[in-house]
């Protein structure tokens, strides 16, 4: 185990940021600390880096007790959400900073900086100032700067949080490929479950200063330890007293199957390739998502608004029966066409 966190607690005034947290982060992997804002994940990362001191507990990095070490002695690379670029230095000098501090020979520094700039695709931008780079380029520079000192662990605090959606997606693909190339133990903080599921080997879900669950993306998605993890990792909908994923439900329009829950289609929304169907069953609104192909085959339409509430128009409405029939791990909703 590369990073060993034992019984770490941290308070800011009366706010408990971390409450007796213990976690082991494996070597050479990409681990995500996932959770809502204010849940303590950034604090944990900053405690690993030494930028914050834990009130109690210990941190070991590659077997070395780092609890009392200042950040400069921990040999960690840290990437900030807002880049923290050294504004008065060129991109090259930014990347070279850690090596210059370590008094490496000039030729070695030059060679290493060239290599890193190639790695982050900034070889043409070496002489620019950070202000002349785009957000994505600045963050790649910050990554190169952190990697330059060959850190034992690379820590990224919401690294793509300040970037727009498209660049964010590109950069996280790129981070995954980079990690497959460099293999440095990497921990990154995110509140975006999609980002964590897509990039990480292992996910630590943190909420309210406590760890909710640790596992691979598949484990977390398929077997969430509790409702919080279930809700946080993807869309959910309530069916009876059960929390299920909308895409695990099936709609039938035939006769109600035994045990099926029946209801009425109250709303249909198209979001790109998927269709969201809201089925009202008694006092509950169940959300079902399905593909366009499946949606067309079902031939369902929503009732029209008329007067003060939803009032179905005879020819367009279907009576929906929603059933919970497990098909492996899948739940089913049936919407029969009975009128």
């Amino acid at each position: 185990m590369s990073i060993e966190i034992s019984n770490v607690s941290k308070r800011f005034g009366s706010f408990v940021a971390l409450d007796d947290v213990s976690v082991s982060i494996p070597s050479g992997q990409l681990t995500a600390l996932l959770g809502p804002s204010g849940g303590g994940k950034s604090t944990l990362l900053r405690i690993i880096a030494g930028l914050e001191q834990a009130d109690s507990g210990s941190v070991r990095i590659e077997g070395v007790d780092a609890t009392g070490l200042p950040p400069q002695k921990r040999n960690v690379g840290f990437v900030f959400q807002h880049y923290a670029a050294f504004k008065h230095m060129s991109v090259r000098r930014n990347v070279a900073f850690g090596l210059e501090i370590r008094r490496r020979p000039k030729a070695e520094i030059r060679e290493r900086v060239d290599e890193l700039l190639r790695l982050v695709h900034l070889e043409q931008f070496g002489d620019r100032l950070p202000a002349q780079l785009s957000g994505g380029q600045r963050q790649r520079m910050a990554l190169a700067r952190a990697l330059a000192v060959e850190p034992t662990v690379l820590l990224l605090d919401e690294p793509f949080g300040a970037l727009d959606a498209k660049v964010r997606k590109e950069l996280r693909d790129w981070l995954r490929r980079l990690h497959d190339e460099v293999h440095v133990t990497t921990v990154f903080v995110t509140h975006d479950q999609e980002e964590a599921l897509e990039v990480a080997d292992e996910i630590v879900v943190i909420n309210d200063g406590r760890i909710e669950q640790i596992g691979t993306p598949d484990e977390l998605y398929d077997a969430p330890a509790n409702d919080f993890v279930m809700r946080f990792l993807g869309p959910v909908t309530q069916l009876g007293d059960q929390l299920v994923r909308p895409h695990d439900l099936v709609i039938h329009t035939g006769d109600p199957e035994p045990g099926a829950v029946t209801g009425q289609v109250s709303r249909i929304t198209r979001i790109g390739f998927e269709i969201r169907v809201e089925v009202t069953t008694g006092d509950q609104v169940v959300v079902v998502t399905l593909t366009r192909t499946r949606f067309r085959a079902l031939d369902i339409e929503e009732g029209r608004r008329c007067g003060s509430g939803w009032r179905p128009r005879r020819s367009l409405t279907r009576c929906a029966s929603v059933e919970e029939a497990r098909c492996r791990s899948r739940h089913a909703v049936t919407t029969p066409s009975g009128r």
Binding site: G50, L51, P71, Q72, F78, F86, K87, G98, A142, A148
Partner: peptide
Amino acid sequence: DEQEQAARSLGAN
């Protein structure tokens, strides 16, 4: 103080 923190994490005293 982010630039200062970055410098510290890169080994500067």
